[in-house]
Nucleic acid binder design. Structure first.
Lengths: 144, 144
DNA sequence: TTAAATCATTAGACGAATACAACTACCCGA
DNA sequence: TCGGGTAGTTGTATTCGTCTAATGATTTAA
């Protein structure tokens, strides 16, 4: 069997379509950037912090950036009153960054925009939607 | 029926998982950026040009950027020997950008990296993969 | 034929993001 | 207590992409 048997071809086609479905909706990115008045990267940082307080080190790792830039991004979010730094009782070298109330509502606004499924998804036949839901959950779960 | 009935909740969950599946694999972006030695934006431009020759105006529109930057990006790709400008017989103001042979193989290399489905997709039960393929095709088709 | 509009280009200012080097405060093991 | 390693910060340099303004060449409409 070649490297392009039926399964592979099907998977490639499905993958291409999935990419188009998700990436095609980059208007959402623009929407959220405009709604919050900050870069998408900072929105991502804010959403991460809103999910659970983190140290700057953890934030940098999870955003795939370096420590100095994490400091700068948190500075910016802090100056907007969206997050705050508190001491880490377990390690006085580090600081814990958590959202303020304002920050939480901003993060929720972003999540609402980004989490709204496209109309075509809502328009799927209920059976298809249920199956897609199950498969997507499995794929997301497998750490892919 | 509220705004959060069962269908909506299912669609939102499926959408969130689809986003994670596609966006989680941003390693692919890094892979392709490293493989081609240029920014992802330029890779995107190259792939667009490889698909079909375009004027700089069209390229700018489709990359959602402005004309001056399209000029700059094409300058860069041209200096790498990946694309070339030719006169547009239909309108002597504009120029047509098309790929060279080198550019085509580079674009294909990028497409190969980006088009490779994640392992979890290939590992799906054949029935599930077939269903996913059908649904994804429908979603991608509807212009979402 | 004249005037307005369009295409590609050049230039400069700007913010966003990455990468490095260096510094302090602090933790921890020898 | 001493020394190496880590967390956060500061600073600098560089690249990338957006935005605005302006220009010469050309098309199109009046």
């Amino acid at each position: 069997m070649s490297t392009h048997d039926t399964t592979t071809a099907t998977a490639e086609r499905a993958w291409a379509n999935l990419r188009e479905i998700v990436l095609g909706g980059n208007e959402r990115r623009k929407d959220v950037v405009e709604a919050l008045g900050m870069s998408f990267f900072r929105v991502k940082a804010l959403r991460r912090i809103a999910r659970e307080p983190v140290t700057l080190r953890e934030l940098a790792d999870q955003l795939l950036t370096d420590r100095p830039y994490a400091t700068l991004v948190v500075d910016d979010l802090e100056s907007r009153g969206l997050v705050e730094r508190t001491a880490n009782p377990a390690d006085r070298r580090s600081k814990i960054v958590s959202v303020t109330e304002t920050g939480r509502s901003a993060a929720e606004r972003a999540n609402r925009i980004l989490g709204t499924p496209p109309a075509a998804l809502l328009a799927l036949p209920p059976d298809d939607l249920a199956v897609l839901d199950r498969i997507a959950a499995r794929l997301a779960d497998e750490g892919l």
